[in-house]
Amino acid sequence: MANRAYLYSLSNRPATFADRPETLSGLSEWAYAVPFSYRLLMSGDPQRCASLIADGLADDEPGHPTPLYAISSRFEPGLARLKRFAGIVRALAPAAAEPAAAPAAPLAKAAPSLLGRLKRLFSSGHGTPAEPAPRAGSGAPRHELLAALDESIAFLEAHRDDYLLLETIELDVMTASEAAALQANVEQEIARCRQAGAALDALPADPAEAARQLRAATREHAAAPLDALHGLRLDDGFDGGGNQPVEYVLGLMWSEVLYFDLHNRAEFEASRQA
């Protein structure tokens, strides 16, 4: 099983494993990485909180669980930043044109559905892509990236709550097992979330200039805070589908159904009484 990062919306900041929210919904999960979209969403006041996935490690001595942490952040500021990011990416669309010598393209097909993109992403390790992959970060955003951003915002609007919860424990235990090291991993991730928000906030208010600086920062190493944008793709290879190389995924796949189906307060209490 792949180790994943998990993102939820919920109504509280958990102080303990048993401090369950009244409302809770899955949002997304990603194997072996924390995508940029997660960090941008978590950038609106990220703080260390209790993990709701596990209360200690499997090899802990009885009665002495290892403290496990997740990250909590307010929902609205992160969503506002993701919306602004989408607007800046959309401003890139008319800024770049296809080469004049390119052959005439067939009529554009409708943007693939979310299910279609999931199938393409998770089948990308088999076979060869139908077309040669463009250079990382090249060209303007095409219909698939723009549609994915629109779908992302619509999904998040429909699942908004007071807080977001980012669970990284499966990723953290890949490199650490001691309590202090696990906590340090979470603190480092909090810093990355703050850096993502600072990078977006540093882009100019003018959409065209913001788009120019965003594209440049994804391609070349920039000074802080814009260095947090390096490696993103702003074309239809944004999440690495179709065997396209990507250094830093945007992470625009969303679902209520995650591997860890966390319990809200009523469900948690019922499970303890069973």
Results as ranks from 00 to 15, higher is better:
Tyr248Gly: 01
Phe155Val: 00
Arg272Met: 14
Phe17Asn: 06
Leu171Phe: 08
Pro129Ile: 05
Ala184Leu: 05
Gln244Ala: 12
Pro225Tyr: 03
Pro65Met: 06
Gln195Glu: 14
Glu256Ile: 01
Arg90His: 13
Phe85Trp: 15
Arg20Phe: 09
Pro94Gly: 10
Leu165Val: 11
Tyr248Met: 11
Leu226Ser: 04
His263Glu: 13
Phe17Ile: 07
Thr23Gln: 10
Ala133Phe: 00
Ala223Tyr: 00
Asn243His: 12
Pro94Ala: 07
Ala15His: 11
Ala223Arg: 08
Arg4Trp: 01
Gly87Gln: 15
Pro204Cys: 05
Asp239Gln: 02
Ser123Gln: 14
Ala274Trp: 02
Leu232Val: 04
Pro65Lys: 07
Ala198Leu: 08
Arg272Ile: 06
Leu229Trp: 04
Pro141Thr: 04
Ser124Pro: 09
Leu234Gln: 07
Phe268Ala: 15
Pro207Arg: 01
Pro14Gln: 06
Arg233Gly: 03
Ser177Cys: 12
Ala202Gly: 08
Leu226His: 05
Leu10Ala: 12
Ala176Asp: 06
Ser73Arg: 02
Gln213Glu: 14
Ser113Asn: 05
Gly78Glu: 02
Gly197Ala: 13
Ala158Ser: 13
His143Asp: 15
Phe260Asn: 14
Gly125Arg: 12
Val89Asp: 09
Pro77Met: 06
Leu214Ser: 10
Gly251Lys: 03
Tyr38Leu: 00
Ser124Met: 11
Ala179Met: 08
Pro103His: 03
Glu189Pro: 02
Arg120Gln: 11
Ala102Lys: 14
Arg39Asn: 11
Arg192Ser: 06
Ile153Ser: 00
Leu171Ile: 09
Pro129Asp: 05
Pro245Gln: 02
Ile53Thr: 08
Glu76Ala: 15
Arg233Pro: 03
Gly231Met: 06
Arg74Leu: 10
Ala33Pro: 02
Asp235Ile: 02
Glu187Asn: 13
Ile53Trp: 09
Glu131Pro: 00
Ile153Tyr: 00
Thr168Ala: 04
Arg192Trp: 09
Leu121Tyr: 08
Ser138Glu: 15
Ser25Val: 10
Arg13Leu: 01
Tyr163Trp: 14
Ala154Leu: 13
Ile88Gln: 06
Arg117Phe: 04
Pro67Thr: 00
Gly116Glu: 15
Leu24Glu: 09
Ala97Asp: 14
Ala191Asn: 07
Thr128Val: 12
Ala205Lys: 13
Glu178Leu: 09
Pro134Ala: 08
Arg74Asp: 13
Glu151Ser: 13
Ala111Cys: 02
Ala210Leu: 05
Gly78Tyr: 14
Arg13Val: 08
Phe36Ile: 04
Ser11Ile: 02
Arg84Thr: 04
Ser37Gly: 09
Gly56Lys: 08
Leu226Phe: 04
Asn264Tyr: 03
Arg117Val: 01
His230Arg: 14
Gly63Thr: 10
Ala184Cys: 00
Leu40Ser: 00
Glu157Pro: 01
Ala15Val: 11
Gly251Ala: 01
Ala97Thr: 15
His263Gly: 03
Leu115His: 02
Ala140Ile: 08
Ala270Glu: 11
Leu92Arg: 07
Leu149Ser: 02
Arg272Thr: 05
Ala205Asn: 13
Asp19Phe: 05
Asp261Phe: 00
Ser255Gly: 13
Gly26Ala: 04
Ser51Tyr: 06
Gly26Gln: 02
Leu149Phe: 15
Arg142Gly: 15
Ala224Asn: 09
Trp254Ile: 00
Tyr248Pro: 01
His126Tyr: 15
Gly197Glu: 12
Tyr6Lys: 03
Arg192Glu: 12
